[in-house]
Design a protein around this nucleic acid. Structure first.
Lengths: 185, 185
DNA sequence: GTCTATATGCCGATAGAC
DNA sequence: GTCTATCGGCATATAGAC
């Protein structure tokens, strides 16, 4: 493993703690401790907690989009089958112990009262990027934009239910509908 | 309007503040003030904040399920059209100023680190009740259980995206896929 | 860049009078 | 049942030494 800069160590600690317990519930002191430093050192690298949370969301955005691309690249067959397979692979990861749903929906919920919060805007931007990517993957579909939105919507709803009930079966059940949404009609 | 008991006044204040700003972000003092009382009076009626938040979720559960039934009862035509119409009516309400997404998904996100929190369990129970109701509405469908789950999943995903982007269009786009999920195949 | 120590404020919760 | 007053704790953030 490559040596981490202090800033990277802070972001690693933030990612684990914020994702596991929620950004609002985790104090900067806990993040600093997990990163092996103290509070003032953290504040040297990040202006305030809002900036730290926003950096966390942006980093997650890059990471999640890359993971989705990778999962999709592993699938084979006609497009509707690949979409369904993508859902099932997401379901696999939802069965891991540390899985806690969609970080972006959770950030949006935690900052529901602050629609202009930069972390929330970053979450929104990420979802748009995923939507654009999905629409690209659907090139050739007679209404790729509509289908892309529907499939993304379905995926996020399935993740939300899987998280709420701790049951990845919702994602697998959604996979079947996603397949038909991806089929040209 | 009927006279409110103090407990009802507290729950009314809690509902507005928790839904507008988030349960974690709103202090009990703000709830008490909005209810026209002080903190110790609130603590006379609720043991602690967890009990207050849980009561809020349970009240919302009853209210939302009743609203869904009412919206659905207003629709007409064959079942798939009624489902699509239900989505569009939810989209209408999502365009109201005070709309802030699904309170249950938001509670689940706020208490992500406490899977056994009673408010989270109440949110989970509510979603199950909606799922059961939807499956009842789909009686006659060759795989009502699967379709019910898919439609509910789609609805929640659409609400989540509408909330994240402040764009109810996601719910209207989802309506079309919900229609085909409700169609017997 | 990182530390020890601390300022400052808010939050949940309670004591005790009425 | 509701109040005034307050406790103890934890949160974000900073001062100042090294």
């Amino acid at each position: 493993m490559t040596t981490q800069s202090t800033r990277e160590a802070i972001l690693t600690a933030a990612r684990r703690l914020f994702y596991a317990h929620g950004a609002q519930s985790v104090g900067v002191e806990a993040v600093a401790r997990k990163a092996g430093i103290t509070k003032p050192a953290l504040y040297y690298h990040f202006k305030d907690k809002d900036h730290l949370v926003t950096a966390y969301v942006e980093e997650q955005g890059v990471s999640v989009l890359a993971a989705l691309r990778r999962l999709f690249d592993q699938t084979t067959g006609p497009l509707p089958e690949r979409i369904a397979e993508l859902f099932n692979r997401v379901a696999d990861s939802a069965e891991e112990q540390a899985w806690r749903g969609c970080p972006f929906q959770r950030i949006a919920a935690e900052f529901a009262g602050e629609p202009k919060h930069p972390a929330r805007l970053a979450a929104s931007a990420h979802k748009k990027a995923v939507e654009v990517w999905l629409i690209e993957m659907l090139a050739g579909h007679p209404s790729a934009e509509r289908a892309g939105r529907q499939i993304l919507t379905l995926l996020d709803g399935a993740i939300a239910h899987a998280f709420l009930h701790r049951d990845a079966g919702y994602i697998r059940t959604a996979a079947e509908l996603a397949r038909s949404a991806a089929a040209s009609r």
